[in-house]
Protein backbone atom coordinates (compact mmCIF):
# COMPACT_ATOMS: atom_id res chain seq x y z
CA UNK A 1 0.00 0.00 0.00
CA UNK A 2 2.93 2.33 0.42
CA UNK A 3 3.09 4.70 -2.47
CA UNK A 4 5.07 7.83 -3.13
CA UNK A 5 3.17 10.80 -4.41
CA UNK A 6 4.65 12.45 -7.44
CA UNK A 7 4.33 16.03 -8.62
CA UNK A 8 3.82 18.90 -6.21
CA UNK A 9 5.70 16.69 -3.80
CA UNK A 10 7.71 19.65 -2.62
CA UNK A 11 4.63 21.53 -1.46
CA UNK A 12 5.08 21.56 2.29
CA UNK A 13 1.54 22.51 3.14
CA UNK A 14 -1.00 20.45 1.29
CA UNK A 15 -3.73 22.75 2.43
CA UNK A 16 -3.50 26.46 3.16
CA UNK A 17 -6.20 28.93 4.12
CA UNK A 18 -5.46 32.58 4.67
CA UNK A 19 -7.93 35.00 6.20
CA UNK A 20 -10.97 33.18 4.84
CA UNK A 21 -14.33 34.82 5.51
CA UNK A 22 -17.81 33.65 4.65
CA UNK A 23 -21.20 34.85 5.71
CA UNK A 24 -24.69 33.82 4.69
CA UNK A 25 -27.15 36.69 4.28
CA UNK A 26 -25.20 38.85 6.73
CA UNK A 27 -24.71 36.06 9.27
CA UNK A 28 -20.96 35.29 9.56
CA UNK A 29 -20.27 31.56 9.31
CA UNK A 30 -16.48 31.63 9.12
CA UNK A 31 -14.35 34.56 10.28
CA UNK A 32 -10.65 35.17 9.53
CA UNK A 33 -9.76 31.51 9.25
CA UNK A 34 -6.10 30.67 8.76
CA UNK A 35 -5.12 27.05 8.33
CA UNK A 36 -2.07 25.17 7.18
CA UNK A 37 -1.98 21.37 6.97
CA UNK A 38 1.45 19.90 6.16
CA UNK A 39 1.82 16.82 3.98
CA UNK A 40 1.11 13.56 5.73
CA UNK A 41 -0.54 15.12 8.74
CA UNK A 42 -3.90 14.12 10.15
CA UNK A 43 -5.66 17.23 11.26
CA UNK A 44 -8.89 17.33 13.21
CA UNK A 45 -11.25 20.20 12.70
CA UNK A 46 -13.22 20.21 15.89
CA UNK A 47 -15.97 22.17 17.47
CA UNK A 48 -19.66 21.78 18.22
CA UNK A 49 -22.33 21.64 15.50
CA UNK A 50 -22.86 25.00 13.89
CA UNK A 51 -19.30 26.14 14.58
CA UNK A 52 -18.51 26.55 10.89
CA UNK A 53 -16.74 23.26 10.20
CA UNK A 54 -18.84 22.22 7.20
CA UNK A 55 -18.70 25.71 5.71
CA UNK A 56 -14.89 25.71 6.04
CA UNK A 57 -14.67 22.31 4.39
CA UNK A 58 -16.99 23.34 1.57
CA UNK A 59 -14.81 26.38 0.98
CA UNK A 60 -11.74 24.15 0.87
CA UNK A 61 -13.55 21.98 -1.68
CA UNK A 62 -14.51 25.06 -3.76
CA UNK A 63 -18.15 24.07 -3.37
CA UNK A 64 -18.62 27.40 -1.66
CA UNK A 65 -16.55 30.43 -2.47
CA UNK A 66 -15.18 32.62 0.32
CA UNK A 67 -16.20 36.28 0.56
CA UNK A 68 -12.58 37.12 1.31
CA UNK A 69 -9.30 35.33 1.83
CA UNK A 70 -7.17 32.82 -0.05
CA UNK A 71 -7.34 29.07 -0.42
CA UNK A 72 -4.57 26.84 -1.67
CA UNK A 73 -5.07 23.12 -2.09
CA UNK A 74 -2.23 20.82 -3.16
CA UNK A 75 -0.37 23.84 -4.44
CA UNK A 76 -3.31 24.98 -6.59
CA UNK A 77 -5.46 28.07 -6.06
CA UNK A 78 -8.62 25.96 -6.02
CA UNK A 79 -9.58 22.41 -5.20
CA UNK A 80 -11.27 22.35 -8.62
CA UNK A 81 -7.80 22.10 -10.17
CA UNK A 82 -6.88 19.15 -8.02
CA UNK A 83 -10.18 17.29 -7.65
CA UNK A 84 -8.76 14.01 -8.86
CA UNK A 85 -6.21 14.00 -6.03
CA UNK A 86 -8.71 14.78 -3.29
CA UNK A 87 -11.06 12.41 -1.56
CA UNK A 88 -14.12 14.04 -0.02
CA UNK A 89 -16.81 12.65 2.21
CA UNK A 90 -19.46 15.32 2.75
CA UNK A 91 -21.51 15.41 5.90
CA UNK A 92 -24.72 15.10 3.91
CA UNK A 93 -23.80 12.28 1.65
CA UNK A 94 -25.99 10.45 -0.77
CA UNK A 95 -25.95 7.74 -3.34
CA UNK A 96 -27.86 6.98 -6.50
CA UNK A 97 -30.46 4.78 -4.90
CA UNK A 98 -31.14 2.71 -7.99
CA UNK A 99 -27.49 2.20 -8.88
CA UNK A 100 -25.59 -0.92 -7.94
CA UNK A 101 -22.86 -0.41 -5.32
CA UNK A 102 -20.06 -1.59 -7.60
CA UNK A 103 -21.24 0.59 -10.50
CA UNK A 104 -21.62 3.63 -8.22
CA UNK A 105 -18.11 3.31 -6.80
CA UNK A 106 -16.67 2.68 -10.26
CA UNK A 107 -18.47 5.80 -11.55
CA UNK A 108 -17.02 7.97 -8.77
CA UNK A 109 -13.52 6.59 -9.27
CA UNK A 110 -13.71 7.06 -13.06
CA UNK A 111 -14.86 10.65 -12.58
CA UNK A 112 -11.67 11.11 -10.61
CA UNK A 113 -9.66 9.77 -13.52
CA UNK A 114 -9.05 6.22 -12.34
CA UNK A 115 -8.98 3.53 -15.07
CA UNK A 116 -12.08 1.34 -14.98
CA UNK A 117 -10.42 -1.99 -14.21
CA UNK A 118 -8.33 -0.52 -11.40
CA UNK A 119 -11.40 1.26 -9.99
CA UNK A 120 -13.30 -2.01 -9.87
CA UNK A 121 -10.55 -3.99 -8.12
CA UNK A 122 -9.83 -1.19 -5.67
CA UNK A 123 -13.51 -0.82 -4.79
CA UNK A 124 -13.75 -4.57 -4.21
CA UNK A 125 -10.68 -4.52 -1.97
CA UNK A 126 -11.95 -1.61 0.15
CA UNK A 127 -15.46 -3.04 0.45
CA UNK A 128 -13.94 -6.25 1.78
CA UNK A 129 -11.86 -4.28 4.27
CA UNK A 130 -15.03 -2.64 5.58
CA UNK A 131 -16.88 -5.92 5.88
CA UNK A 132 -18.99 -5.47 2.76
CA UNK A 133 -17.76 -8.39 0.66
CA UNK A 134 -21.03 -9.26 -1.02
CA UNK A 135 -22.75 -5.95 -1.68
CA UNK A 136 -21.07 -5.06 -4.97
CA UNK A 137 -23.97 -6.30 -7.07
CA UNK A 138 -26.67 -4.97 -4.72
CA UNK A 139 -28.57 -1.78 -5.36
CA UNK A 140 -27.73 1.05 -2.99
CA UNK A 141 -31.34 1.29 -1.83
CA UNK A 142 -31.20 -2.31 -0.60
CA UNK A 143 -28.42 -1.59 1.94
CA UNK A 144 -28.86 -0.68 5.59
CA UNK A 145 -27.91 2.82 6.69
CA UNK A 146 -24.67 1.71 8.32
CA UNK A 147 -23.63 -0.29 5.26
CA UNK A 148 -24.45 2.66 3.01
CA UNK A 149 -22.26 4.97 5.08
CA UNK A 150 -19.38 2.55 4.73
CA UNK A 151 -19.99 2.43 0.97
CA UNK A 152 -19.93 6.22 0.86
CA UNK A 153 -16.64 6.20 2.73
CA UNK A 154 -15.23 3.81 0.15
CA UNK A 155 -16.41 6.29 -2.49
CA UNK A 156 -14.24 8.97 -0.92
CA UNK A 157 -11.02 6.95 -0.91
CA UNK A 158 -11.45 4.57 -3.84
CA UNK A 159 -9.28 6.68 -6.14
CA UNK A 160 -6.33 6.75 -3.71
CA UNK A 161 -6.34 10.49 -2.97
CA UNK A 162 -3.37 12.43 -1.65
CA UNK A 163 -5.64 14.57 0.46
CA UNK A 164 -8.62 13.15 2.26
CA UNK A 165 -11.30 15.46 3.61
CA UNK A 166 -13.91 13.88 5.83
CA UNK A 167 -16.81 15.88 7.21
CA UNK A 168 -18.14 14.20 10.34
CA UNK A 169 -17.12 10.75 9.09
CA UNK A 170 -18.46 8.98 12.19
CA UNK A 171 -21.77 10.81 12.40
CA UNK A 172 -24.64 8.43 13.02
CA UNK A 173 -22.46 5.33 12.71
CA UNK A 174 -22.79 2.21 14.82
CA UNK A 175 -19.73 1.27 16.94
CA UNK A 176 -18.73 -1.56 14.59
CA UNK A 177 -18.71 0.76 11.58
CA UNK A 178 -16.76 3.37 13.55
CA UNK A 179 -14.10 0.82 14.38
CA UNK A 180 -13.85 -0.40 10.77
CA UNK A 181 -13.67 3.18 9.50
CA UNK A 182 -10.95 4.14 11.95
CA UNK A 183 -8.96 1.15 10.77
CA UNK A 184 -9.14 2.26 7.16
CA UNK A 185 -8.33 5.87 8.10
CA UNK A 186 -5.22 4.58 9.91
CA UNK A 187 -4.27 2.63 6.77
CA UNK A 188 -4.62 5.80 4.72
CA UNK A 189 -2.45 7.65 7.23
CA UNK A 190 0.25 5.03 6.93
CA UNK A 191 0.07 5.36 3.16
CA UNK A 192 1.04 9.01 3.63
CA UNK A 193 -2.34 10.55 2.87
CA UNK A 194 -2.91 13.98 4.34
CA UNK A 195 -6.19 13.89 6.21
CA UNK A 196 -8.47 16.65 7.40
CA UNK A 197 -11.54 15.55 9.22
CA UNK A 198 -14.14 17.36 11.19
CA UNK A 199 -15.94 16.04 14.20
CA UNK A 200 -17.85 17.33 17.15
CA UNK A 201 -16.92 14.26 19.17
CA UNK A 202 -13.63 15.07 20.89
CA UNK A 203 -12.70 11.46 21.62
CA UNK A 204 -12.43 10.72 17.87
CA UNK A 205 -10.06 13.63 17.42
CA UNK A 206 -7.93 12.60 20.41
CA UNK A 207 -7.57 9.12 18.99
CA UNK A 208 -6.75 9.98 15.38
CA UNK A 209 -5.24 13.45 15.13
CA UNK A 210 -1.70 14.68 14.87
CA UNK A 211 -3.08 18.14 15.30
CA UNK A 212 -6.34 19.78 16.23
CA UNK A 213 -7.92 22.96 15.02
CA UNK A 214 -10.79 24.12 17.15
CA UNK A 215 -13.47 26.30 15.73
CA UNK A 216 -16.04 28.11 17.76
CA UNK A 217 -18.67 30.39 16.26
CA UNK A 218 -16.77 30.60 13.00
CA UNK A 219 -13.46 31.57 14.61
CA UNK A 220 -10.40 29.46 15.14
CA UNK A 221 -9.80 29.25 18.88
CA UNK A 222 -7.03 26.66 18.92
CA UNK A 223 -4.55 25.26 16.40
CA UNK A 224 -1.94 23.01 17.94
CA UNK A 225 -0.30 19.60 17.52
CA UNK A 226 -1.70 17.03 19.91
CA UNK A 227 1.81 16.41 21.24
CA UNK A 228 2.34 20.00 22.25
CA UNK A 229 -1.20 20.20 23.57
CA UNK A 230 -0.45 17.25 25.80
CA UNK A 231 2.77 18.93 26.96
CA UNK A 232 1.15 22.29 27.49
CA UNK A 233 -1.66 20.92 29.53
CA UNK A 234 0.90 19.24 31.75
CA UNK A 235 -0.30 16.14 33.55
CA UNK A 236 -0.71 17.74 36.94
CA UNK A 237 -3.77 15.85 38.06
CA UNK A 238 -4.03 12.39 39.52
CA UNK A 239 -7.35 10.62 39.60
CA UNK A 240 -7.96 8.15 42.37
CA UNK A 241 -10.78 5.78 43.09
CA UNK A 242 -10.54 3.73 46.30
CA UNK A 243 -11.52 0.06 46.36
CA UNK A 244 -13.68 0.76 49.40
CA UNK A 245 -16.03 3.59 48.50
CA UNK A 246 -16.33 4.55 52.17
CA UNK A 247 -12.56 4.82 52.72
CA UNK A 248 -11.31 7.95 54.40
CA UNK A 249 -9.37 9.98 51.86
CA UNK A 250 -8.34 12.90 54.03
CA UNK A 251 -4.85 11.44 54.57
CA UNK A 252 -4.08 12.00 50.92
CA UNK A 253 -3.87 15.75 51.32
CA UNK A 254 -0.55 15.49 53.15
CA UNK A 255 1.31 13.78 50.32
CA UNK A 256 4.28 15.80 49.26
CA UNK A 257 3.59 17.76 46.06
CA UNK A 258 -0.21 17.65 46.34
CA UNK A 259 -1.57 21.16 46.27
CA UNK A 260 -5.26 20.41 46.69
CA UNK A 261 -7.77 17.63 46.53
CA UNK A 262 -11.39 17.47 45.48
CA UNK A 263 -13.64 14.54 46.22
CA UNK A 264 -16.63 13.95 44.03
CA UNK A 265 -18.81 10.83 43.72
CA UNK A 266 -16.29 8.86 45.75
CA UNK A 267 -13.47 9.79 43.36
CA UNK A 268 -10.60 12.03 44.35
CA UNK A 269 -8.84 14.43 42.03
CA UNK A 270 -5.46 15.54 43.28
CA UNK A 271 -3.81 18.66 41.94
CA UNK A 272 -0.06 18.15 41.79
CA UNK A 273 2.37 21.08 42.04
CA UNK A 274 4.17 21.95 38.85
CA UNK A 275 7.55 20.21 38.64
CA UNK A 276 6.47 17.34 40.85
CA UNK A 277 6.67 13.89 39.26
CA UNK A 278 3.09 12.61 39.27
CA UNK A 279 4.25 9.00 39.31
CA UNK A 280 5.70 9.62 42.78
CA UNK A 281 2.34 10.87 43.93
CA UNK A 282 0.62 7.80 42.47
CA UNK A 283 2.93 5.45 44.35
CA UNK A 284 2.29 7.33 47.59
CA UNK A 285 -1.49 7.39 47.08
CA UNK A 286 -1.59 3.65 46.44
CA UNK A 287 0.43 3.03 49.57
CA UNK A 288 -1.98 4.98 51.78
CA UNK A 289 -5.40 3.79 50.51
CA UNK A 290 -6.11 0.55 48.58
CA UNK A 291 -6.96 1.72 45.07
CA UNK A 292 -9.54 0.44 42.61
CA UNK A 293 -8.07 2.76 40.04
CA UNK A 294 -5.37 5.38 40.08
CA UNK A 295 -4.16 7.23 37.01
CA UNK A 296 -2.64 10.42 35.66
CA UNK A 297 -5.43 12.49 34.17
CA UNK A 298 -4.90 12.75 30.43
CA UNK A 299 -5.59 15.94 28.61
CA UNK A 300 -9.08 15.83 27.26
CA UNK A 301 -9.96 17.98 24.27
CA UNK A 302 -13.36 18.37 25.77
CA UNK A 303 -11.84 20.12 28.79
CA UNK A 304 -9.62 22.25 26.58
CA UNK A 305 -12.57 23.28 24.49
CA UNK A 306 -14.86 23.94 27.39
CA UNK A 307 -12.06 25.92 29.02
CA UNK A 308 -11.69 28.08 25.95
CA UNK A 309 -15.38 28.77 25.47
CA UNK A 310 -16.29 28.91 29.16
CA UNK A 311 -17.36 32.48 28.78
CA UNK A 312 -20.19 31.27 26.57
CA UNK A 313 -21.16 28.41 28.80
CA UNK A 314 -22.57 30.60 31.50
CA UNK A 315 -24.70 28.27 33.52
CA UNK A 316 -23.67 24.81 34.63
CA UNK A 317 -26.54 23.40 32.68
CA UNK A 318 -25.40 24.72 29.32
CA UNK A 319 -21.85 23.58 30.04
CA UNK A 320 -23.18 20.12 30.71
CA UNK A 321 -25.15 20.21 27.45
CA UNK A 322 -22.01 21.26 25.59
CA UNK A 323 -19.99 18.48 27.22
CA UNK A 324 -22.60 15.89 26.29
CA UNK A 325 -22.52 17.16 22.75
CA UNK A 326 -18.73 17.01 22.60
CA UNK A 327 -18.84 13.47 23.91
CA UNK A 328 -21.09 12.54 21.04
CA UNK A 329 -24.05 11.88 23.30
CA UNK A 330 -26.23 14.46 21.57
CA UNK A 331 -26.17 15.14 17.88
CA UNK A 332 -27.82 18.53 17.65
CA UNK A 333 -26.30 21.97 17.95
CA UNK A 334 -24.89 22.84 21.34
Amino acid sequence: MSQQFVGDGDVADVLKLLGVEKSFSGQPAVTALDLAVPRGETCGLIGPSGAGKTTSIRIIMSILFPDAGKVEVLGRPSALDAKDRIGYLPEERGVYRKMRVGAFLKYLACLKGMPEALARSRARELLAKLGLEDVEKKKCEDLSKGMLQRVQFVGAIVHQPELLILDEPFGGLDPVSVRLLKGVISDERRRGTTILFSTHVMAHAEELCDRVVMIHKGRKVLDEPMSSLRRRYDPTRVLFEPLDPKANLDGLRDIAGVVSMQVKDGEAELQVAAGTDPSMVIREVAARVVPARVEIARIRLEDVFVGIVRSDAKSGESEQALRQHLQGLTGGAA
Partner: peptide
Amino acid sequence: SRVVEVLLAAV
Protein backbone atom coordinates in the same frame (compact mmCIF):
# COMPACT_ATOMS: atom_id res chain seq x y z
CA SER B 1 -30.73 12.19 -2.25
CA ARG B 2 -27.77 14.49 -1.44
CA VAL B 3 -25.58 12.66 -3.89
CA VAL B 4 -24.89 16.00 -5.52
CA GLU B 5 -22.26 17.07 -2.99
CA VAL B 6 -20.40 13.81 -3.55
CA LEU B 7 -20.49 14.52 -7.27
CA LEU B 8 -19.34 18.10 -6.81
CA ALA B 9 -16.17 16.74 -5.24
CA ALA B 10 -15.41 15.12 -8.57
CA VAL B 11 -16.92 17.43 -11.18
